[in-house]
């Protein structure tokens, strides 16, 4: 809004008075994003409970599916699981347990779900984290090169390859790698985190883990990096028509400086958002990859819970997986604000 004749703003000697109040708006922004994340977390908790209680389908019947279980046994099981209590009472129990850090009790493992998850979360973070970092670096680097040399042979092969990888089902690629390099050529172990019964420690142990990780990481990277490449390429192409690049060229910058100093930092912004939005996909990848390679992580645990079926365990992995992704997105929002000064003033 204009107030063209007043003189309040730019008093000589009083520099900096019209700087936007960054500190306070930072708090507001964080609070807003935290509120959003909190609502999402609450929705996860609710969904985690109600999906298993309200949707058509009887968990106990599914549980008994394919097994010889009498009607009486099923009733006893219902009683044990508290499924005969009123819904609200069940919900209250679920909530209070959740606040005590409990996620129920696994039928199949006879162990609290929380303990199971605690032992499996490490390998999953190791696997997905490594794969994510490699994919981001690879995808962004190839993407920006492809965009800058748009139409070149490099661009065409990289885009083509990315599209093919994007069309490959993760588990099938995993199976192929497993058959070829694990079964056939025996270059890498076929499953697990470490060699069974290993007594190694220190560097040899790390080496063992790396050998076990290689195939699962390659599988995940192959499927995930393609998306990052395409997003980075598209957003850099978008930036390449921007007027400020003309300014930069007019100033006498070399083409590579125009790209690295001006175009890429701007193109990164939409890319970062999309990378974090695809974190959920990464988790999906973890489920299939861990299943194929018997990687003792949360994804494999989800598969085991699903094949049992073990509903408290499945509910637990759903809540934990979703919460992790929601929290990561919350951090992404904070990071985004650091990257994009335009958000700071808003």
């Amino acid at each position: 809004m204009s107030n063209a004749l007043s003189t309040q703003d730019l008093v000589p000697g009083d520099h900096g008075t019209d700087e936007p109040p960054r500190a306070s708006s930072w708090l507001k922004y964080t609070a807003m994003k935290a509120g959003g994340a909190l609502i999402s977390l609450i929705m996860v908790v609710l969904l985690g409970f109600f999906a298993f209680r309200i949707l058509p389908g009887d968990p106990v019947r599914s549980l008994a599916d394919g097994r010889r279980v009498s009607v009486e046994q099923m009733d006893i099981l219902r009683e044990q699981l508290g499924l005969n209590d009123p819904l609200l009472a069940q919900f209250w129990r679920y909530l209070t347990e959740l606040f005590q850090g409990q996620l129920g009790y696994s039928y199949t493992y006879n162990e609290p779900v929380v303990n199971l998850i605690a032992t499996r979360i490490g390998p999953t973070v190791l696997l997905t984290g490594t794969a994510a970092i490699i994919s981001v670096v690879l995808g962004l680097w190839l993407g920006q090169r492809a965009a800058w040399r748009r139409g070149s042979l490099f661009d065409k092969t990289q885009t083509g390859l990315a599209l093919v990888f994007w069309s490959v089902p993760t588990f099938w690629l995993g199976l192929l790698l497993l058959l070829l390099f694990g079964g056939g050529l025996q270059w890498f172990p076929t499953g697990g985190l470490v060699t069974a019964g290993t007594t190694e420690t220190g560097l040899p142990l790390i080496w063992d883990v790396i050998r076990h990780m290689t195939l699962p990481v390659i599988t995940m990277v192959a499927v995930v990096y393609a998306q990052y490449l395409m997003v980075m390429r598209a957003s850099l192409l978008e930036e390449m028509t921007s007027d400020y690049l003309m300014t930069a060229r007019a100033k006498g910058l070399r083409e590579d400086e125009v790209r690295t100093k001006h175009a890429v930092p701007n193109a990164l912004l939409p890319t970062v958002t999309l990378i974090f939005l695809t974190l959920g996909g990464l988790v999906g990848g973890a489920v299939t990859v861990e299943t194929v390679f018997s990687w003792p992580g949360l994804g494999y645990l989800t598969f085991q819970a699903l094949s049992a079926p073990d509903f408290p365990l499945l509910q637990g992995t759903f809540v934990v997986f979703s919460s992790i992704v929601i929290l990561m997105n919350f951090f992404a929002d904070l990071l985004y604000r650091v990257l994009d000064p335009r958000l700071r003033a808003a």
Partner: peptide, 24 residues
């Protein structure tokens, strides 16, 4: 050409809004 640009002739572009890099 690069050394001529801006030292011998410079341009004030149309629409300063878009001619400045928004993140610097």
């Amino acid at each position: 050409l690069r050394s001529v640009r801006w030292t011998e002739a410079s341009i004030v572009f149309q629409g300063a809004m878009h001619s400045l890099n928004p993140v610097r």
